[in-house]
Computed example of a mutant assay.
Amino acid sequence: HNVIWSGISSRTSYPAVPDERHGTALSCTILNLLLLGPVWSFVRGTTAVLIDRTDPVGLAEAIRTDGVSRITLVPTLVHDLVEHPDVHREDLSGLTHMIIGAAHTPPELRQRWYDKFGTWPLVGYGLTEAPSGMVRDRAGHRANSTAAGFPLDPVEVLVVDRNGVDLPDGEVGEVCFRARSGGRWAGVWTPMLGYWNRPEATREALRGGLLHTGDLGHLDADGQLVVRGRQNQLILRGGANVYPAEVERVLLTHPDVAESAVIGLPDERLGERVVAVVVPVAGCSPDPADLSAHCAVDLARYKVPEKFLVVDELPRNAMGKVVPRDLLPLFGG
Rank of each mutant, 00 (worst) to 15 (best):
W113N: 09
G229V: 12
D115R: 11
S6F: 09
V123L: 01
V322A: 05
G182I: 03
L33V: 15
N144F: 14
E90D: 15
R325N: 14
D19T: 13
A103C: 08
I30C: 09
V275S: 01
A300Y: 06
L77G: 00
G332H: 03
I99M: 10
G58L: 06
G238P: 14
V281C: 12
D66G: 09
I4Q: 13
V43E: 03
R178C: 04
L330M: 04
D222A: 03
D55W: 10
P288D: 05
A300C: 09
L216N: 01
Y14W: 14
T105D: 08
V172T: 06
H79M: 11
E200V: 15
G94H: 01
L73N: 12
D267N: 07
N2A: 05
V297Y: 05
A102I: 13
N241Y: 08
A300N: 05
D298S: 13
Q224E: 10
P168K: 00
G209D: 00
E306C: 01
T213C: 07
N197G: 12
V43R: 04
A221W: 02
R112S: 12
L299E: 06
M98T: 14
W196N: 12
L216F: 03
G7F: 03
V297K: 07
G7R: 00
A245I: 13
G271F: 06
H84S: 07
W40T: 10
E61K: 02
L122N: 01
L211H: 00
S27E: 11
V279Y: 01
A48S: 04
A289G: 15
C284A: 14
W40H: 15
G320L: 11
V226N: 07
W189L: 00
E306L: 00
H141V: 15
R64K: 13
E306I: 00
Y195K: 03
Y114D: 09
T190H: 05
I235W: 02
G58C: 06
L251C: 11
P255Q: 06
D91T: 10
T202P: 13
G208S: 07
